[in-house]
C-alpha cells in the first residue's frame, strides 16, 4: 500500500474535525495526485522484460497497488509506454508510430539493458542501441531483465516525475498540434528522416559506416 497523498497546502488553518473531508490545495497537486494513481501503461511486450512486466502485474508484485493494473493494448488509451525489451530495427517504425499515437501527456520507460542502450545485443545488425535514439525516455530501469521490484521502483520514479508537473506554467499550448516524431523507414538499413543530410554527405565518397580509430 502506498500512502495517501497529502493534498493540503501548508499554512491554512482547517479545523480538526473537518480535516478528514476538507483540503485546501492547488490545482497542480490535485491533478498530479489523480494522474499518479491512475497511470495506464500500454500492454506492449517486446522481449524477455515483458515476462517480468507480466510477473509484476500478477499476484505477487501486484501493480494494482499503484493504480497501474489497467494495461491497455491500445496506445490511444495509455499514458505510459514501457519499452520492455530489445528494440530491433524491424520493429522500430511500429514503436515510433505507437508513441506518436499516445495522447499527451505521455511517459516512456526504457525497461532493461536492451531498451536503455542495446544491452548484450548492442552490436547486432538488427538491434537499435537504445530506444532513446529515436523517442524521448523518462526513466531507465537497469537489469537484464529488471526484477519486478526494479520495475516497480521505476514506476515510482515515474510517479515522482508526475508529482513535479506544473499544469499552468509548463502546460502545452493546446491550440497547436503535437509534433509527431518522424517514423523511421526500412531501407538498406533503418533510415531516420532526421538524418537525411548526414547520410547524403556521408555516402558521397564511400559507404557510410562506423570507423573506429586504431588501438595503440
Amino acid at each position: 500500500m502506498t500512502e495517501t497523498p497529502n493534498l493540503n497546502t501548508e499554512g491554512y488553518d482547517i479545523s480538526p474535525e473537518a480535516r478528514a473531508n476538507v483540503a485546501i490545495t492547488t490545482i497542480d497537486k490535485i491533478f498530479n495526485a489523480g494522474r499518479r494513481y491512475s497511470v495506464w501503461p500500454m500492454m506492449f511486450g517486446l522481449a524477455c522484460c515483458a515476462i517480468e512486466m507480466i510477473s509484476a502485474a500478477a499476484g505477487r508484485y501486484d501493480l494494482a497497488r499503484f493504480g497501474m493494473e489497467v494495461l491497455r493494448p491500445s496506445p490511444r488509451q495509455s499514458d505510459l509506454m514501457i519499452v520492455s525489451g530489445t528494440v530491433t530495427k524491424k520493429m522500430l517504425p511500429q514503436i515510433v508510430r505507437l508513441y506518436n499515437q499516445m495522447p499527451d501527456p505521455k511517459y516512456v520507460m526504457a525497461m532493461g539493458a536492451c531498451a536503455s542502450g542495446g544491452g548484450p545485443f548492442k552490436e547486432g545488425y538488427n538491434v537499435v542501441s537504445g530506444v532513446d535514439k529515436y523517442i524521448p525516455v523518462d526513466v531507465y530501469v537497469p537489469g537484464c531483465p529488471p526484477t519486478p521490484q526494479a520495475l516497480l521502483h521505476g514506476l515510482m520514479k515515474i510517479q515522482e516525475k508526475i508529482d513535479t508537473e506544473k499544469h499552468f506554467t509548463n502546460f502545452r499550448d493546446r491550440t497547436k498540434p503535437i509534433e509527431p516524431i518522424p517514423v523511421p523507414i526500412l531501407g538498406p538499413d533503418i533510415i531516420d528522416p532526421r538524418d537525411y543530410e548526414t547520410i547524403k554527405d556521408g555516402v558521397k565518397s564511400g559507404p557510410l559506416t562506423t570507423v573506429i580509430p586504431a588501438v595503440e
Binding site: 547486432g124 531501407g187 537525411y196 555516402v203 557510410l208 559506416t209 570507423v211
Partner: peptide, 26 residues
C-alpha cells in the same frame, strides 16, 4: 569507447555508397 561516437549518424546504421534516402522507395 562508446562506439556510437564513431558513427556519423550516431546510431547502429550503415548505408551503401551513393545512397539517396529521399529518392528511395520501399
Amino acid at each position: 569507447y562508446r562506439i556510437e561516437d564513431h558513427n556519423p549518424v550516431g546510431k547502429n546504421n550503415q548505408y551503401p555508397q551513393g545512397f539517396d534516402p529521399e529518392s528511395w522507395s520501399p
